[in-house]
Design a protein around this nucleic acid. Structure first.
Lengths: 157, 157
DNA sequence: GTGGGTGCAAAGTGTTTGCAAGTGT
DNA sequence: ACACTTGCAAACACTTTGCACCCAC
């Protein structure tokens, strides 16, 4: 997502905050700046760490209290990558339909969208008697480059 | 899955157990009978409860020690439905490519397979430079029947 | 007999919450 | 001023583990 998109998303999140009569504190500011300033997936613990770099006074409790706001408002998506912890995806606001491919070799996560896929998912839902609301697709794959060249372009592995 | 399929799967799991030089105890027997005797998704706690009905001496610890064997051997799949707990899917052995549609209205889970979907997923993976290994698709949907008739065929809701 | 298996209860781990003090509006 | 927020530490819920005894092979 571009920097401008991120800024726009942040602005809309602040409106969400305001519409719920919630307040902007320095701790929330640090957390929000962090979330809308990265493309990377993160854990709650990482978010705490990064936010603390901006404002030392951010506590674990506040991170855990702020995350649900971000998820509820739709700007961040909760992900279960099958690793030990839950991850959060900050790229959801502008790409609500994106999916994830996780490389088994290098742990790289590739985000992608595909219109045909969406159409097919909708057709399947209808065939089963439902209307699609949201979907999550995770593809676990191995890196072709690694197999051919013995190295992976995504990460030295 | 048919009863015969379930029995075949159970037999293959017992071979897996044997190949690892693990032993068959009455507690494991009860847990395994439970898993290969249901089509329903379950939590660790439910598995404990059901297994205890067959053998009172099954403990929580043994359930938690046996579940990884079932997952590792590929007969049960771990699922994160976005509800509070992890669920386990016992229908994975004969249908490793199946996906899930979860009805937001009635919590019903519909399992489905689709060849076109698999082909598309593989094509996408290749396009991105990877080879598909496994995939998980979860569709969250609402029930058409409920909207039209005010009731849901899957569950009175 | 031996090495894996068991139940129990204690310890872990990630997340939530009660409380008293602090602060944005 | 008032209601929302905070950090802290205790509480939680789920899962894992150390231990001494047990039992399948």
């Amino acid at each position: 997502m571009s920097v401008a998109d991120k800024e726009a998303a942040k602005k809309r999140f602040l409106e969400f905050i305001e519409s719920k009569n919630l307040r902007m504190t320095s701790q929330r500011q640090a957390i929000i700046d962090t979330v809308f300033g990265t493309d990377e997936h993160f854990t709650a613990e990482q978010l705490l760490e990064w936010s603390k770099e901006k404002d030392q006074s951010v506590s674990r409790a506040t991170v855990y209290r702020t995350l649900p706001l971000l998820v509820e408002s739709g700007f961040v998506q909760e992900m279960d990558l099958g690793r030990e912890n839950k991850y959060y995806d900050p790229n959801y606001a502008e790409h609500p339909h994106h999916n994830h491919l996780i490389c088994q070799d290098c742990d790289k996560i590739v985000e992608f969208e595909d219109e045909k896929l969406e159409e097919l998912e909708e057709a399947i839902s209808n065939r089963l008697g439902f209307s699609l609301r949201t979907q999550k697709l995770q593809i676990s794959a191995s890196c072709d480059q690694l197999k051919k060249l013995g190295a992976c372009k995504n990460k030295s592995c």
